[in-house]
């Protein structure tokens, strides 16, 4: 059992969620209520990681973050470190491949808030910011929670992109999914089995948590 890999995966999941959720809330609220030219294209681009083979996504990220790329060069010049095969690069890749998992549930949640509820808030004298904070966000909370859980669970399980961008450096980029693959390659099936069981449990608990929470909220709000 590679506890270090589990710890790294959890850290990666937490950091990804922390970086991605504020971005996802802003973008999904915008997509939910604004109608503009290119909206469908924007949604398609944001959904790409869902259907793109992880190796393809990983390849492009490698190109984008590599030491020869503009982003990679700037990052190396500022932080004297590399984006590929490092935790920071893995984190950036993780943010990108989790975008649809964060944006879509939150967007759906914002879309279910009736327009007249927001208008009622404005008529109560609430500013746009107060309306967001006191009305929209609490009502979209099930979507935010789904996004949080899905992002973390998906980060724990992602394999292809992580291998492409991060490689397999213990303590730096070896996540639990990579560790399972590594153990199977070394014929250490017992460790691979334990880690797989842990991932299975975490995934099941995450999904169950979302369903339970959403069901409770639905009953509470009479939806």
């Amino acid at each position: 059992m590679d506890w270090q890999a589990l710890q790294l995966s959890l850290l990666l999941g937490a950091c990804t969620a922390a970086l991605l959720l504020p971005f996802a809330i802003v973008v999904s609220r915008w997509l939910a209520w604004r109608r503009f030219h290119g909206r469908n294209l924007a949604q398609a681009v944001l959904a790409l990681p869902l259907i793109l083979p992880p190796t393809v996504l990983g390849y492009y990220l490698l190109e984008l973050l590599g030491n020869q790329s503009i982003l990679g060069t700037v990052f190396t010049a500022v932080f004297h470190d590399s984006l590929v095969f490092s935790f920071q690069g893995l984190l950036l890749a993780s943010v990108v491949f989790n975008i649809p998992f964060a944006v879509q549930p939150i967007q759906r949640a914002f879309e279910t808030i009736p327009q007249d509820i927001r208008e009622a808030a404005w008529c109560c004298g609430l500013s746009d910011w107060q309306t967001f904070w006191k009305i929209e966000l609490p009502l979209a909370w099930p979507g935010v929670l789904s996004a949080l859980v899905l992002t973390i669970a998906h980060t724990l399980g992602e394999f292809g992109v992580v291998l492409m961008v991060g490689g397999n450096i213990p303590g730096e980029t070896r996540t639990i999914a990579i560790a399972i693959y590594d153990r199977v390659q070394a014929f250490d099936n017992q460790s691979a089995g334990t880690m797989s069981a842990i991932l299975l449990l975490i995934s099941m608990a995450a999904i169950a948590l979302i369903y339970t929470f959403n069901d409770r909220l639905d009953r509470r709000y009479g939806r």
Binding site: A120, A121, C124, G125, Q130
Partner: peptide, 26 residues
């Protein structure tokens, strides 16, 4: 303006009391 919407547009996550006090920001 006091506006009573057709389907009331009450804030579903807030109690009756909280729905009212939210409009008392002044």
């Amino acid at each position: 303006v006091g506006f009573v919407f057709q389907h009331y547009a009450l804030f579903p996550h807030l109690t009756a009391q909280q729905n009212i006090s939210l409009a008392l920001g002044h």
